[in-house]
Simulated scan of single mutants.
Amino acid sequence: MLYSYSFQNKKRDLSDVLSTVIKDEPRFISLFKPSEDATQQKHEWLEDQLTGRSVTVTAVSSGTLSASAADLAKLKVGTLVVVKDDSALFRVATVTSSGFTVALVSANGSKTAAPAADDVLSIVSTPVQEGSNPGDGDETGLTGQTGFNCTQIFRKDIILSGSALAVNVFGTVDNQLNKQTAFALGELARDLNRVALFGRRVEATASARGEAGGLYFFGCGDNGLSVDASAAALDSVVVNDAAQAVLGAGGDPSLILCSPGQARVLSNEYKNQLQIVRSDDRRGAYVAVIVNEINGRGMTVMADPDMPDTDSWIIDPAGFGLASLKGRAITDSDATPKGFDGIKRMALGEVTFVFRNAGARLCRISNLKASATALAALRGGN
């Protein structure tokens, strides 16, 4: 090697440094916290049980209600249920391997006499008698359903030529390498951000490279939540519609992801509510947190330049995670070929993204009015 430096024969773990870079990025990727290591390229996880349990009636015959085996396992004799969007209370009278029967125990102001086919019965509770035994209570825990994503290999080559080393802009060789490594990790964080948004899920094979799926892949699936804005501007009404969808599915809507232009549109909705007093030396209409009208909690506005301008997402980020394949976290090591006039180091790692309960924690707001058009209309109105 023509040039020497203090860590030329060392392999450095950059995962902590990358976590710091990601944390400081005001982008979507900053929502992903380090998760447990993946043990294989197809990284699986168990979905959480977010909503109260429910049973779907598939058919009704002579008073007997049919349901799937998984739903029947949730019921016991004495379990109390209500039909979704109705107040009548029913008690489970019998449960067999093929169906169950119920009896109306309290009308609660409703005229519903019995559940019908395709009704969703929400389980209220299962009253337990005094001196109960194991197995008498409700069973709860993980849903047993799994989700998965695939790992993707990321590589950045850090190159310092002999001329760059001679110029000595950043001081010693160590300082120059650390500076270039920081640049490479910043670029990697931006790459990860775009994969976390737009990536597709591809499992690695002999002929295919592994790719990690992102927000649009998981959020736009068959069970994904969505709200069509019908070419209207982004405002508190459509935001609360999407927040209600997430809350109804069991998630906790706490973040609004949109483009910088749409963040300005949303802020301008509250412009008329500003109060200026004589002592103020600043004014403007920047809104960072919006209180939703469903549960009164705040939702942080995150403006990401990579977001499509006509889309926005209402998100519960509690299910997000960034997992490295075991033993394949981001590291850098020497990659200088013999006789090369300079130094080469290689930053390499294999990671994936966890989107736990994506069908309940993500809601897409699509077909928004373009922010430039919406801002022009606001400007004209003012």
Results as ranks from 00 to 15, higher is better:
residue 289 V to R: 10
residue 265 V to I: 08
residue 237 V to H: 13
residue 290 I to W: 06
residue 230 S to G: 09
residue 289 V to A: 08
residue 277 V to E: 14
residue 267 S to D: 05
residue 227 V to I: 11
residue 255 L to R: 08
residue 285 A to L: 06
residue 252 D to S: 14
residue 278 R to A: 14
residue 260 P to T: 07
residue 277 V to S: 15
residue 230 S to D: 12
residue 290 I to S: 03
residue 261 G to P: 01
residue 254 S to R: 13
residue 277 V to R: 15
residue 267 S to C: 07
residue 216 Y to I: 11
residue 283 R to Y: 15
residue 240 N to A: 04
residue 301 V to C: 05
residue 267 S to T: 05
residue 271 K to E: 11
residue 284 G to R: 06
residue 301 V to K: 04
residue 232 A to N: 11
residue 245 A to S: 11
residue 239 V to Y: 00
residue 285 A to Q: 10
residue 249 A to I: 03
residue 292 N to A: 00
residue 254 S to T: 13
residue 257 L to A: 02
residue 284 G to N: 07
residue 224 G to W: 14
residue 289 V to P: 02
residue 248 G to M: 09
residue 285 A to W: 10
residue 233 A to N: 12
residue 278 R to I: 10
residue 227 V to T: 05
residue 297 R to E: 12
residue 231 A to I: 03
residue 297 R to H: 14
residue 237 V to Q: 12
residue 279 S to K: 12
residue 243 A to H: 00
residue 297 R to Y: 15
residue 297 R to N: 15
residue 246 V to M: 05
residue 216 Y to D: 10
residue 247 L to V: 02
residue 231 A to P: 02
residue 237 V to Y: 15
residue 301 V to S: 05
residue 272 N to K: 15
residue 293 E to D: 11
residue 217 F to H: 11
residue 258 C to G: 01
residue 302 M to Q: 07
residue 299 M to P: 00
residue 287 V to E: 07
residue 238 V to M: 09
residue 239 V to L: 09
residue 258 C to I: 02
residue 245 A to Y: 06
residue 241 D to A: 14
residue 282 R to Y: 12
residue 255 L to E: 10
residue 266 L to S: 02
residue 280 D to M: 10
residue 255 L to V: 12
residue 279 S to A: 14
residue 301 V to A: 04
residue 256 I to Y: 01
residue 290 I to K: 08
residue 263 A to I: 03
residue 224 G to L: 13
residue 283 R to C: 10
residue 302 M to K: 10
residue 232 A to F: 03
residue 268 N to C: 08
residue 273 Q to I: 08
residue 284 G to F: 10
residue 217 F to P: 01
residue 240 N to L: 01
residue 237 V to W: 12
residue 269 E to A: 08
residue 236 S to Y: 03
residue 259 S to R: 04
